[in-house]
Design a protein around this nucleic acid. Structure first.
Lengths: 333, 333
DNA sequence: GTGAAAGCGCTAACAC
DNA sequence: GTGTTAGCGCTTTCAC
């Protein structure tokens, strides 16, 4: 049994028209007489013809495929972004090549390269510290890239995110207002801009506004996992810190449970505010107060922005900040 | 500034060899004299030539891309599978086109079609009830498909999963042994084979072995969400049911919290065993006892199986069952 | 409104 | 070992 692919040529022959005409009807080009169109459509139906997207991609230099570089699919934060991206992508008839980067520079570079080799029409990038080598590739490839879920850097790739500085400042101020003299900033790796730059900035601004001196020892860069949070509990228990703003929900859940298991009452003896309002914030007991981010929307807007860029449309704002909010629950007073 | 793509032809000219030779060195074909190879490699380096995967795909009829159809990226169960799939895929130099299906038949069909149009070399399918229309497409396309995370059906597509019948039977037996006379089966939609067929079967087998009559009213098919579980709590509280085996961790977390919030003590007054041992099982208080599944491995093995199939290698077992286990935590006695 | 023909960038016989 | 030459299946000028 041979795989007998029906090509555009077969359709043309059967319909007694040229390939060009078939191509026109397949692509919805209006310059076809209705009668001809119908004739072609009938043959397509009869032969069950399906256009080959690869051939089309080669001829047109457009693949209607975009690359999505994600640090970790299993992280609820990124998964939520990915959902928004995917929805809008399919709305605009794009497919997504999903590539896990492990937030690892060399893997990222490799992934970018294979994405470019596959001739994607654009890329949605999740992650900070976009290496120079990667920027180089982006430039060379001349395709649009939008950074999703992270604030744009000075080099100014288009981006969509919330204002992490402001969000952090508000949350920390909140904690400070509850009378906590020592508030920790607990995040993922501090060498990532979102942590070491934006969140740290917001944190410092809050302290300054409250007239409290910044102490390096109150900043904890972790590997952003449940276990890291759980382990951190001991360290915090044995310090004068009585509250923490945490950059990731799993991390916060770990910290919360670690504290609770060690007999530290939350929020009475220790307050926690987390960042992403994913399901984890509702599952823990007490439920966690959290900054809220329109995660799905960030993904969706990122993809929408990318479609405009791919289409060479005007965009008035390349660095989009979506509004954040706050839900008060039971992990803070 | 024009995007000046360097082609294999440019390399050939500069290196004073034929395209064929360039193609050979690019593809690691041994039939090239080392000196020639070096010469070509130098030119490739100098020109910074990058093969165009689309053109290659058209010429070779292989895209080194596989489609992955996933019901919901934001579900920890599927995300974990996806991680295993992606890791093995990149190990074997395949890229992944990730497509969300929402576990919705018509979306699935559409997604399968665009995947096939893109000439993927194979497909990993997550989901039950593979519609006849979809099976039709798979057959027609003549590409390998493996079902991941769900047990193969009689129609017998290759698959990788645990034995859901046995796992369910064990968990329910466990609950029965604790003296519960009325044990509920709480799952996602019952019209999905994994629920209505395998889990239900295991459930019935456990009841039968214990000499307890099956009661339809103890089976709850839900939409498999945290909220669905939370809402179900009321219903269960007002019944004679005192334990539940739950098919999804978020669902179980919802049920657990719903019960707790209504003053029902777990596990004293109500026992819960969940299914996937994702982070949710550890985050809740009490922590949840759970069937354990090697999720990452299921994904990884699925992809590995697919590579063999795509490579027309012999496979001795098309329906692979991976071992499951059980972790005892605090939601069951 | 439609067709002819030249590619798109590469692989894969086949010949030498 | 290396080169020649057809394609792969489609889009896209450019004529008519």
């Amino acid at each position: 049994m041979e795989k007998q692919t029906v090509t555009i040529y077969d359709v043309a022959r059967e319909a007694a028209v040229s390939m060009a005409t078939v191509s026109r009807v397949v692509n919805g080009n209006p310059n076809v007489k209705p009668a001809t169109r119908k004739k072609v459509l009938d043959v397509i139906e009869r032969l069950d013809y399906r256009p080959n997207a690869v051939a089309r991609g080669l001829a047109s230099k457009k693949t209607t495929t975009v690359g999505v570089i994600i640090p970790d699919v299993t992280n609820a934060f990124f998964a939520q972004l990915a959902l928004g991206i995917d929805d809008i992508a399919s709305m605009y008839k794009y497919n997504i090549i999903l590539a896990n980067s492990d937030e690892n520079g060399s893997k990222e570079l490799q992934v970018v390269n294979t994405l470019l080799a596959k001739q994607v029409d654009g890329i949605v990038f999740m992650g900070n510290k976009i290496g120079d080598d990667i920027k180089q590739e982006f430039k060379r490839a001349q395709i649009p890239v939008v950074v999703s879920g992270f604030m744009g850097e000075e080099d100014n790739l288009p981006s969509v995110s919330i204002d992490y500085v402001a969000a952090t400042k508000e949350a920390v101020t909140n904690l400070l207002n509850h009378g906590n003299q020592h508030v920790a900033l607990v995040t993922g790796p501090i060498d990532q801009a979102i942590n070491g730059k934006y969140r740290l900035n917001g944190y410092k601004q809050a302290l300054e506004a409250a007239g409290i001196e910044f102490d390096d020892a109150s900043v904890f860069g972790t590997n952003e996992s449940y276990d890291a949070g759980y382990k951190l509990a001991e360290q915090l228990q044995n310090s004068d810190i009585s509250a923490a703003f945490v950059g990731d929900d799993e991390l916060a859940a770990g910290l919360l449970n670690g504290l609770t298991d060690r007999g530290v009452k939350v929020p009475e003896a220790f307050e926690i505010i987390t960042s992403n309002d994913t399901k984890y914030a509702e599952v823990t007991r007490p439920k966690m107060s959290s900054v809220t981010q329109p995660l799905y929307d960030i993904g969706a807007v990122s993809m929408r922005l990318l479609t405009k860029l791919m289409n060479s449309e005007e965009v008035d704002e390349r660095n989009i900040i979506l509004p954040h909010g706050f839900v008060e629950r039971d992990s803070a007073k």
